[in-house]
Simulated assay, not measured.
Amino acid sequence: MSSVLKRIKIVADREGMSVSAFEATIGASKGVFTRALANGTDIQSKWLISLVEKYPQYSSEWLLKGEGEMLKPADIAKEDDETYLTPELEGITNSVIYTLKQVVASQNVTIKSQEKTIMSLERLLSSLERELDLLKNK
């Protein structure tokens, strides 16, 4: 297994996701990382770029070369960020907000995956019901 793939696995674990769920968050088709991890093969650079864009808190130098710290220093709120906190929320740091946004994004991926599973199961159920009707009518 390549060192980059090991670090991608570390990022997925740190984000609390399976590698499959992590693939979905960066727009990779199912199995891109899983197969590469299993077979010890390389991945396309577009997936690394997507990972770095989607998870900017991770150092691209660490991800690619294994050098330096895994996490970038916590960013101060960007000037164009128009998030205003109510007085009761002022103690919440940007990193907490960012982490909560990541949790929400992860949950959205899970929801989309579950929606696909439900649709697949509904199609299967419909097919089985049709088969049952055919058997009853014989």
Results as ranks from 00 to 15, higher is better:
66 G>M: 11
61 E>L: 09
30 K>T: 12
26 I>N: 01
66 G>C: 09
19 V>C: 04
54 K>Y: 01
56 P>K: 14
20 S>K: 09
53 E>S: 14
30 K>H: 02
65 K>Q: 06
32 V>I: 15
41 T>R: 12
20 S>V: 15
24 A>F: 03
63 L>A: 03
51 L>D: 05
37 L>I: 15
53 E>Q: 14
20 S>N: 06
25 T>R: 15
46 K>M: 04
44 Q>W: 00
21 A>D: 07
56 P>T: 13
58 Y>M: 07
42 D>L: 13
26 I>L: 10
39 N>Q: 14
33 F>L: 15
34 T>P: 00
38 A>V: 06
66 G>H: 09
64 L>C: 08
20 S>H: 04
46 K>F: 01
66 G>Q: 08
68 G>N: 07
35 R>L: 13
24 A>G: 01
29 S>Q: 08
31 G>C: 08
33 F>C: 11
59 S>R: 06
60 S>W: 00
29 S>C: 05
24 A>D: 05
48 L>D: 02
68 G>V: 14
53 E>M: 14
24 A>I: 10
48 L>A: 02
32 V>R: 10
64 L>E: 02
22 F>M: 10
18 S>D: 03
50 S>R: 13
32 V>D: 02
51 L>R: 07
30 K>D: 01
35 R>D: 08
30 K>N: 06
39 N>A: 11
58 Y>N: 08
52 V>D: 06
58 Y>E: 03
53 E>R: 15
42 D>Y: 11
49 I>C: 02
52 V>C: 12
47 W>E: 00
48 L>T: 09
59 S>F: 03
57 Q>P: 00
61 E>Y: 02
45 S>L: 14
59 S>Y: 01
65 K>V: 07
44 Q>T: 10
20 S>Y: 02
19 V>P: 00
